[in-house]
Design a protein around this nucleic acid. Structure first.
Length: 375
DNA sequence: AACTCGTGGAT
DNA sequence: TATCCAAGAGT
């Protein structure tokens, strides 16, 4: 028999926070950044929070472990070359986060004397750190009563407070931050626990679809639940459909089995800037894949033969779906310049490279080697 | 305020 | 398969 559904009680931060905190202590997941050696270190909390921006726990976990193993302290990160930092971020996405985190580490060393700042506004001033991330570092690592509102907290509070209309409006945002502030200021709970508890509730119970209200420790304070509207709140406007793009890649191998890679420009506002990839171009409308490859070869200064399609990746990006056709090429001229180089598959794995390219290379690596005919 | 930035898992 | 969406920040 199901438990009786509790009667609705108007929101009171003190009762709400204590109930939620107790639930968190018994129900939280064991995550790497929640281990004692990590959650008391503001640098390591910062690493986890930056990685977790718009990124799932499952995706972040292996990256966090590798990153902390390679850069265990803020000093070690600050003195590392950017190429090395990007290589440890390769595949995680949103690569400006890696540059900003690197910049934040340098700032701690150079502008804060190697001591991680404890002042909220100084944390907020670090590159890549906004109101949410600063609040997370301050509350979790430094036990300061600073509120946080991420997608989880926004969803939880929008239901509890039964917030109407688009959540992104300034008016509704201030409602959410006000609610988060009231909760983190409850002295009976620790800011180190109650903020993660709000997110954990959103991740495990108060989910986007079909929230598990029967399991919710704060059900009786939930305005949406009282009206049986937990599946309708929060309201979110649908995003524009992605525009499909069709790209072709040239897969060129030399006699040693090395593959030709190109570095994308550093100084332009483009995707994957500064990262390595197979030479690639976007098909012009009406152009066949073979024609696009011929054009790409001309731009690079080598002739492309072949045309066997060996891989096709569809990739969901914010506004684009990218289809990659990978063709085999033979190379007639040695490419000059720093932006292009021959690279073994093994060495390629150590380069900063977007996930789509890593997947593509992994596929190509398993193919039987083929002797190229030089023109 | 609206747009951009990556990726992978869930539904 | 199509769509949603995740511990957001910068511009």
């Amino acid at each position: 028999m199901p438990f009786p559904r509790p009667e609705f009680v108007p929101f009171r931060a003190a009762d709400f926070a204590v109930s939620l905190s107790n639930w968190f202590r018994s129900s939280q997941r064991d995550l790497p950044w929640r281990r004692e050696e990590n959650f008391s270190d503001p640098y390591r909390v910062l690493v986890s929070e930056i990685m977790l921006q718009q990124t799932t726990v499952a995706a972040v976990t292996p990256f966090f472990k590798r990153f902390i193993a390679r850069f265990p302290t803020v000093e070690s990160l600050a003195k590392a070359p950017e190429e090395d930092v990007l290589a440890h971020w390769a595949g995680l996405g949103y690569y400006s986060r890696a540059r900003n985190l690197h910049g934040a580490a340098k700032s701690v060393i150079e502008e804060h004397g190697g001591q991680f700042p404890r002042d909220f506004n100084e944390i907020l001033a670090l590159p890549g750190v906004g109101r949410y991330t600063a609040g997370a570092v301050a509350s979790i690592a430094l036990k300061q009563r600073k509120p946080i509102v991420d997608a989880n907290v926004a969803r939880v509070l929008s239901r509890v407070l039964a917030v109407e209309g688009d959540l992104k409006t300034a008016k509704n945002q201030s409602k959410l931050w006000e609610g988060a502030t009231q909760i983190v200021e409850v002295e009976a709970v620790s800011p180190r626990e109650i903020n993660p508890a709000m997110m954990e509730l959103g991740a495990l119970v108060c989910t986007p679809k079909n929230p598990q209200c029967e399991l919710c420790p704060v059900e009786k304070w939930c305005g949406a639940r009282a009206q049986n509207r937990q599946n309708e709140l929060p309201f979110v406007a649908s995003k524009a459909a992605p525009t499909p793009l069709f790209d072709v890649c040239a897969f060129a191998q030399n006699a040693d089995g090395e593959v030709l890679l190109r570095k994308r420009p550093e100084d332009q506002k483009i995707w994957w800037r500064g990262m390595w990839e197979l030479p690639r171009t976007t098909r012009i409308e009406g152009e066949t894949a073979a024609q696009a490859l011929t054009r790409l070869g001309g731009e690079l200064g080598f002739a492309i033969e072949g045309g066997e399609e060996v891989a096709c990746l569809k990739h969901g990006v914010t506004r684009y779906a990218i289809t990659l056709s990978c063709l085999e090429a033979s190379v007639s001229t040695q490419i000059a310049g720093e932006m292009v180089k021959w690279c073994s598959f093994e060495a390629a794995r150590a380069l900063p490279m977007p996930a789509a390219m890593k997947t593509l290379l992994k596929t190509l690596e398993k193919r039987p080697a083929r002797q190229l005919r030089l023109l």
